[in-house]
Write a protein that binds this DNA or RNA. Sequence first.
DNA 1: TATTGTTATACTCTATAACTATA
DNA 2: TATAGTTATAGAGTATAACAATA
Lengths: 160, 160
Amino acid sequence: MRTVNALPERPLQAAPVDTGFLESLIGYNARRAALAIIGHVLQRLQPYGLRVVEFSVLTVIAHNPGVTSRQVCAALDILPPNLVGLLRRLEQRGLIEKRAHPGDRRAQGLYVTDAGAHLQAQAQQAVAAVECSDVTHLDAAERATLIALLRKVYQGPAAA
Amino acid sequence: MRTVNALPERPLQAAPVDTGFLESLIGYNARRAALAIIGHVLQRLQPYGLRVVEFSVLTVIAHNPGVTSRQVCAALDILPPNLVGLLRRLEQRGLIEKRAHPGDRRAQGLYVTDAGAHLQAQAQQAVAAVECSDVTHLDAAERATLIALLRKVYQGPAAA
DNA sequence: TATTGTTATACTCTATAACTATA
DNA sequence: TATAGTTATAGAGTATAACAATA
């Protein structure tokens, strides 16, 4: 039995509340874990002036030169109208550029500029650092297990 | 080597995109899994006219009779101003009620009405059904492992 | 001086309808 | 007829500042 009482006095707010049922749900726990980790990612990306979605988009473009808007949308579950503003900001900052798509004049290929590639590489290192056990509280084996189970949940049994 | 081509024709959108780095991150996978599962929860709650947050609040009140607003906020990571409207709607629907708090005239205890208790119990059954393997693609052991690892991530090593 | 509950407000994120140009 | 990209807009969700009543 612990006598946790780091707080002075102990206001109403601090009294324990039973959230047992919610804590038994995968959705509840996955959401809390995602918010916690993404909060750390947010902080690490701040020096680069990137939000989490912007980093995701920049990373997909960097790793897939010539990818189209629709492909980015499909890969990241972003709706096309919501990607327009994101791409515009990244383009205005000189991080990406659009070029004519060979073979389909409706589409346009997306490419990172040299500056975009440089920023993405630095940001990727910063983001990867969040996976360390100091932040995740997991060792390498636990982390691998967790990711495999999460992929199974949202990709189905087909998840590798 | 697979030749996956269930789609007719194959528009640009369907071409595969490398998201390898993102898929190696706990935050990315936890977010996708949470969105997938919570999407199912959303559907199951629709017959009861409850959003996910509303169900969470109703559940905490049902399991903690007399709980205060601030305690609900602390338990569910909701900011006090954002809880006001939620409670007002639940109260107007006759699902909860506020009573004077014994010993602190600033606070008010929250209680479910009979109708609220009935609705919450039904909704809880519907939500619990989402945990089945048909939806989560996990067996009981995998599910237990996943939840334990997720709690470790957002609660730290102190997670039971 | 600090806490409870509240209003007003702003900002982000997500979602839908509809348009254009190409296929 | 369907797809790629875009505009405009509506709706959630989330955030801060500031207030009255009470501790």
